[in-house]
Design a protein around this nucleic acid. Structure first.
Lengths: 229, 229
DNA sequence: TTATTGCTGTCAATGTTCTGACACCCTGGC
DNA sequence: GCCAGGGTGTCAGAACATTGACAGCAATAA
């Protein structure tokens, strides 16, 4: 679970400030100060999001984003543009070529992280470190804890990720295969039935407080996290 | 010993950024966005240092600093000026009226804290950070001592830094890599597993009083300092 | 300088927990 | 009853964490 953000910005003070804030908020960062460095860093493992300065020496940011959108592998990486001013032109151009959001300098840590979280939530909802609570069942990604009515619950890492996924995607059925892709990760060779086992373990972990009822079997389809019986 | 910094800056994003960085570095902050608010906050307990924007609406920063230097009680509070650019004029004027240092925007967190520390060191060498106490476990950065229920504990420098980091960042999981970055410093080539060893040494050092329970393993994620089991 | 002491990072051995697979059981629908 | 699909118990191997030992350093004292 890398949660890595690539920061592309030529001014070192601003770049360092960005990375400092992001790291304090629990993200890993990579730094690039120009087009070439950025390109070199955009490869496996791909960053989860790119913060991109509009004005870059040796190739503007818009050029980089265009290139990313042409490659199948990098197309879906969300990009937030950094602009020096709130210029309508830049804004429109940036969104035209595929930027997911933009931030104008100077920015507060709050604006930075909230926009970042908003974009990540849209693209990969499990990547956001907000506390989620459903009917007294509380999951805190930051401290890596799950509590049911303030009573701490114990579970393995996989069950934690599974629950996290469910709580961020409630009221929707997921097939075993979809769960494997989202919780275990893609290209992982695991039996479908394995999901059953972890569902069981998760149910057991949250059963004391009765929250196992939230994890529902949908016969012939998969599983669902729902507050409705 | 309050270690309180007053930030006087009219642009909210920049002000918030300053406060965020300072708070992460262990300072307490107060915010003012203009001359009047700043004046209202400069009283008992006096801030230990003032970060002052050069251009303030309703009275320039230079005016505020002049006023401070006239009052016996506030004269010795060090002031760092914030200037939009490195203009020689501003620099000279600022230092003339008694500013202790200046920082030009944009600035990196490193520059900010190192200049701030330098000024504090010059003005108040004895200035220390606040004592942190959690459940009878007391860490005093000033005397570089750790006590558990008034009983002194012995540990190495790395363990001390590790504990300090944990106590200032409780209730959050940190991966081995994050701990290395925050405690050992960035770009240090050390094995991940080394963290385990120092965790062990730290636990051992605080174990007699049972405080080792505060340092918790989160399997598959890292370590956490928490008062909850 | 030399000796001593304590700190640090690494490693291998050990202990613990998690994971995925399998076999078997249970249930509901027909 | 029979079947399909889901639930449960168990287990070996993998992954992960802890521990003790050790060698290299750096600081300190003699």
């Amino acid at each position: 679970m890398t949660r890595k953000i690539l920061v592309v910005e030529d001014e070192a003070p601003i770049r360092e400030m960005l990375c400092f804030v992001l790291e304090q908020k629990g993200f890993a960062t990579q730094e690039a100060e120009d087009y070439d460095q950025a390109l070199a860093l955009i490869k496996e493992p791909y960053p989860e999001l790119i913060l991109l300065d509009w004005m870059l020496p040796g190739g503007s940011g818009i050029q980089l984003i265009k290139q990313l959108k042409q490659d199948e592998l990098t197309r879906q990486i969300p990009v937030i543009m950094l602009t020096a001013r709130a210029e309508e032109d830049d804004k429109i151009k940036g969104l035209d070529v595929g930027a997911d959001d933009y931030i104008t300098k100077p920015f507060s840590p709050k604006e930075l992280t909230s926009r970042l979280k908003a974009v990540l939530r849209r693209v990969a909802p499990t990547a956001v470190e907000d506390v989620i609570e459903v009917q007294g069942l509380k999951l805190d990604p930051a401290s890596h804890r799950v509590t049911a009515n303030h009573l701490q619950l114990e579970m393995g890492p996989t069950e934690f990720k599974l629950l996290h996924f469910f709580m961020t995607h409630p009221e929707r059925v997921y097939s075993r295969e979809q769960l494997l892709n989202n919780v275990w990760g893609t290209n992982v060779y695991v039996e479908d039935r394995t999901v059953d086992v972890h569902i069981r373990r998760l149910r057991k972990a949250v059963s004391e407080s009765g929250h196992d009822k939230l994890i529902q079997t949908v016969r012939g389809a998969g599983y669902r996290f729902s507050t409705r019986l």
